[in-house]
Nucleic acid binder design. Sequence first.
DNA 1: GCACTTAACTAACGACCGTTAGTTTGTGTT
DNA 2: AACACAAACTAACGGTCGTTAGTTAAGTGC
Lengths: 201, 201
Amino acid sequence: MAKIKSTKNGTKKEIIVETAARLFHEKGFSATSMRDLAEQVGVEAASLYNHIRSKSELLQEICFKVANEFTVNIEQVDTIHQYAIEKVEALLRFHIKQMIYRYENVYVSDREWKHLTDPYLSDYQHQRRVYRKRFATIIEEGIKKNEIKQMDAPTAVLIMLHAVSGIESWHRSRKKISAELLEENMVMILVEGLKSSTAFK
Amino acid sequence: MAKIKSTKNGTKKEIIVETAARLFHEKGFSATSMRDLAEQVGVEAASLYNHIRSKSELLQEICFKVANEFTVNIEQVDTIHQYAIEKVEALLRFHIKQMIYRYENVYVSDREWKHLTDPYLSDYQHQRRVYRKRFATIIEEGIKKNEIKQMDAPTAVLIMLHAVSGIESWHRSRKKISAELLEENMVMILVEGLKSSTAFK
DNA sequence: GCACTTAACTAACGACCGTTAGTTTGTGTT
DNA sequence: AACACAAACTAACGGTCGTTAGTTAAGTGC
């Protein structure tokens, strides 16, 4: 068994991290034991340590993977689009898509980051703060150009970021509307709530 | 020590539950030990059991206390107001105020209810489902009367309920805007996003 | 075929978990 | 002064936690 790739779905470590994300989502970080995780992976608990350094490392991988995706995205969005309101919509749509298609990872990074330990905890908090700040700056810019009505930008950011986490309920609900319809409804409600009523555009 | 009331802030059990809410908020239910809790209350862990039956009971008290407050409120709101959009605004304002002034309890009931065990888990999920359903019905009613624009009502509910949980970030942020300003901004963004553009009212 | 590496295993460590049993302490009532 | 009793204490229970040590099996490259 000297293969570094075990199945076609990436390395064993990647499998472990994905399984951990699922369990952390289902039961929470603290309530998930390494023995739970091992069982789901199909291995003894001690064997996990051939692939990972610690339980904390699993949470770190999940949180920073997700955080980086958002950071990379806002970079792109900020350069591609011209109007602030377009940027906001693009950011919102990305959040929605991540919440739909990479649900477990995003959920864990949103809800369980508190169990990170320093220095990772501080790094993570910093990265999120910077992201929210940048998001707020885009909204400020939109307000100045009269694309977006007068409002407290950080509050608008907070509403958007948390509104999308409501997709959690969508995932849990028995009879769901389609992902596309969900996205369009969310964008409509949230983006229309921002637009200036006297917008020229 | 034969007093049933220990301080002026209610019974010892109430103190324990409030302290538990604070710790469950800070560290999560699973990561909070009875010894942690005891230390914060100023007592040995075993002594807690003179006042409570189990750790689970603490979570139950918190979750159902909060859930009942929302249930009672929607009852009142539904009878007091006439227009659907007014009902929605009243519900939203109540959620915001609860999130500001009873933050820890609401947060715990929102985030840690998964650690309830049956039959409490099922009861809680049912109560929340009924509440959301009722909220959605009010919005449907508003759509029918053209107070609220065409949209998927459950999605609107999900956005509102989760948007207010963003007040978590407000609590954590260093320089906050005032509670009043926060409420007005949130109401503006969210309620304006719902209103029909051809509303007669 | 032999060395090397990877990844599984069993066994166990010390720490901490929620909770119970049994006892002591202190206070208000008679 | 004696009693009742709430509420604190100490000690310990069986269990589970994350993790380490040491070993074994199996595939790779010479």
